[in-house]
Design a protein around this nucleic acid. Structure first.
Lengths: 340, 340
DNA sequence: GAATTGAATGCAAGCGCTTACATTTAGTGA
DNA sequence: TCACTAAATGTAAGCGCTTGCATTCAATTC
């Protein structure tokens, strides 16, 4: 209530409570070491002055911020949303705060964001995929900030991975597509440069081709940026090839939704004339008609495990263990055998 | 490259460059006041040591962070995504960094997040809507942090507003619905408690009722949380009333999409048997079939103007001016006259 | 050549907090 | 009652940076 001209500091609280700043600090951080009576006085003073600790000062003195940073490629679509959401919730339960930054799929921006988060005192980081300049890993090591990688599983990665096998998952889906009789298959991939998830998924399709006696080099593939619009454009382009594909596998649900929409606008019937598959299982995959056959990614589990492991590392209870999570194929309406 | 056991500080750089810390600091912040030769030496030292300024220390000394905080009700769906994205981009252009926090539509969490952002040194804040405890506004004033409100336009708000007229927009849409001949209209609203946007939209429908000789008290309305699932549930419930509505107006696209999906699953034809409208114009509104008639919100313009105004305020070039942006009604396939 | 001036730089005082260590206080057993 | 111990609190040294003011120095003027 009182009109003050300046913001209350620890010292003000100490003065008001008639104790030293050390005691106030202890009240806030390790309440159990201060006597109850003192604690009450301090608490009162804190309330009365509307005191909030200054984060920067605290970070500087304690060399610990209870802040975790995450740099994700995009916030524009829902690809990472659910996973990050759970990541955040899990961190919150343990008293950590999450700071999220987006790299827009640009390596140099990612590096800048990582540095920014570290400068802000992030105790640990969550990164997506392992494809980045080695200097980044050196930097993290030097600054002594722990990090984990999500969205991939790669035992040899320079940091612990909490993720899934993109290659294997896509390969399995491709096996299904081939198994249904599709021989002429197109791929719409996200940009693979600097994106190991996208690359491994394409590799998965290739592998399924080889295994099934198809020629991987005949794979029609288009790489494009993630957006509904681009997915549609890629579809149009793919359908121009002869023979036109009977199935198009997309590296991601956003592209797949764009492809389905555009196909239908063009009068191509999905799945009877053309099958389309996605990857991720984000919400739109169930909204689109026909519902999208896709690979379900364990977003929530990944977010939770990543948070738990990172906390373990920070608290010295783990030196960093990788964890592989399973994906599942969701057979929905957009995939069917080709009409022969 | 060099293996150091500790992170470089300003002092290390100063020593390496053979200058004082003050000079290094100036090199970083006001390069034009230091001689070119000195600047080069310092820059070299910075590079060599891989120096990154410590944010906390800087904030404490400079009392300025070039950081803006935004507290939005949810990150789970795309409602705020595009606006915030543009907000961020605009801030970035002026050298500001955005920190985003989510309140999950919970007032007490919102307050906590606001305090956290302020403690982190946010120079300014972006808030959504004006419906919050007056204490929050007092707190902001006391801490002397500037803030703007987005997503509503309300001349009497305690802070400058950069937004649109929710009431008017929904009223206009309702006029269209009524104008098409609908008399029995249901409403699926987001939770209105503590959410002025939701409340004003419902009021808009009511107003259109009055104007057109319909009885607002006959309005069938369900309040529910924002999710596709909840939207579907609400639809089911609304369709149980007799007479069943011929049109359902939703407070938001997410609810509308849920309603459309569920309706179709139940065999209700949209729009021939039932019209459904939304609000926001997020991406799914174009993916759903039939495409959703909705109110287009100027997300991008709002984000940009909010950022610009906030920066103006922070740099002392404005005392805070509100700005009203126009909405438009997007007539798409989900709205049609009732079959009589 | 001395005085004046302005540009470039250095000095050092904080900013608000944590924490190792010192000090005080209260409780214990002999 | 007194020495001894453990618990509670205080003292003060930083943490890494910015910035007002003092200093230096070279260029300019008379």
């Amino acid at each position: 209530m009182s009109e003050q001209r300046t913001v209350a500091t620890l010292e003000d609280v100490a003065k008001a409570a008639g104790v030293s700043t050390a005691t106030v600090s202890r009240c806030l951080n390790t309440p159990d070491v201060v006597q109850q009576r003192t604690r009450e006085r301090v608490t009162q003073a804190v309330e009365a002055l509307g005191y909030t600790p200054n984060f920067g000062a605290r970070a500087m003195a304690a060399k610990r911020t209870y802040t975790i940073g995450a740099v994700i490629p995009t916030m524009e679509n829902a690809i990472f949303a659910r996973g990050i959401q759970t990541f955040q919730e899990t961190l919150h339960e343990s008293g950590y705060t999450l700071l999220v930054a987006s790299s827009a799929y640009r390596p140099e921006l990612e590096e800048e964001q990582i540095r920014k988060l570290v400068a802000r005192g992030a105790d640990g980081l969550l990164l997506i995929g392992q494809d980045r300049d080695e200097a980044v890993y050196r930097y993290l090591k030097r600054r002594d900030v722990s990090a984990v990688i999500a969205w991939i599983y790669e035992p040899d990665a320079p940091l612990p991975c909490i993720g899934f096998d993109n290659f294997h998952a896509m390969r399995e889906l491709a096996e299904q597509v081939v198994g249904m009789g599709h021989r002429c298959i197109g791929v719409i991939s996200g940009v693979t440069d600097g994106n190991d998830r996208a690359r491994m998924r394409v590799e998965g399709v290739r592998a399924a081709f080889s295994t099934n006696g198809l020629d991987p080099s005949e794979l029609q593939m288009i790489e494009t940026r993630y957006s509904i619009e681009h997915g549609g454009d890629a579809l149009v382009e793919l359908m121009l090839t002869t023979p036109a594909p009977t199935a198009i596998m997309c590296g991601n649900d956003v592209l797949a939704v764009g492809a389905i929409k555009r196909a239908r606008e063009r009068g191509i019937r999905v799945p009877s004339e053309l099958s389309i598959t996605g990857f991720d299982d984000i919400e739109v995959s169930r909204i689109i008609e026909p519902a999208l056959t896709t690979v379900h990614v364990p977003h929530r589990a990944m977010g939770r495990h990543a948070a738990e492991e990172l906390i373990r590392i920070l608290e010295g209870n783990s030196t960093g263990a990788s964890l592989q999570l399973p994906t599942t194929i969701l057979m929905r309406a957009s995939l069917a055998p080709p009409v022969s």
